[in-house]
Write a protein that binds this DNA or RNA. Structure first.
Lengths: 108, 108
DNA sequence: TCAAACTATGCAGTATGCTACATACTTGTA
DNA sequence: TACAAGTATGTAGCATACTGCATAGTTTGA
């Protein structure tokens, strides 16, 4: 479990941005109940994983709300693996399509 | 040669957005010199082509300035075909990379 | 001919995604 | 124990990419 400074260093994402993502509901750290002197927030490996996903997804044109949709589905235990993959695939297919069109553009 | 209304209908891009793109330097229509009574701007097929490119490129996460870079290179006659393709490929490869990573994510 | 539709220009406003700043408290270490 | 480094919270500001509105002029069709 890491504090925000370390999380930032590990992912390369600025602290301000991490806080912004957290406020946007993309993930949640947790405070340690046993610590009474502060309300420092700790982040586990799941958050690192989510941040890496966010970085990749943003790079291929996902909006934050699309990313939230995928993450919400992905980390929801109730739904099937196939249903999870489908949420991600839907957008990925659109992108594949566009990439193909862009590549076709090269032969103009 | 079409006026902005028809261009908008043909591409599905709102008139305001087309004007915004034009002002951003992504392309330029031309006024007909022989017409003295107005300054209506006409757009040729090259502009349609550029707008389609913009739509695709935006969908895979290109920013407008990245798009401008590609378009500028693409429609510059002085540079070689290979050089043009390279400008486009640079970003396309980055995206391919990210897509691959995202697909790998599915096996988690 | 006159009203609807279209065009140009300019500027204000909005949504998204950060980024910076101020304030205040906590922790680690020399 | 002092002081740098880290943390939380809140709010303002900024860049990008639109979107809408007001104003004014032009064109087209019944």
């Amino acid at each position: 479990m890491k504090l925000i400074h370390q999380l930032s260093k590990e992912t390369g994402i600025p602290i301000g941005t991490i806080r912004f993502y957290e406020k946007s509901g993309l993930f949640r750290g947790k405070t340690k109940e046993e610590v009474k002197t502060n309300n420092y927030v700790y982040y586990g490996d799941e958050v690192v994983e989510k941040l890496r996903f966010i970085q990749m997804a943003k790079a291929v044109g996902f909006t934050l709300s699309e990313i939230k949709e995928v993450i919400d589905a992905w980390y929801k235990k109730q739904i099937s693996k196939n249903a999870k993959i489908e949420v991600l695939d839907r957008k990925l297919l659109q992108i594949d399509e566009k990439i193909k069109e862009l590549k076709a553009f090269k032969n103009k």
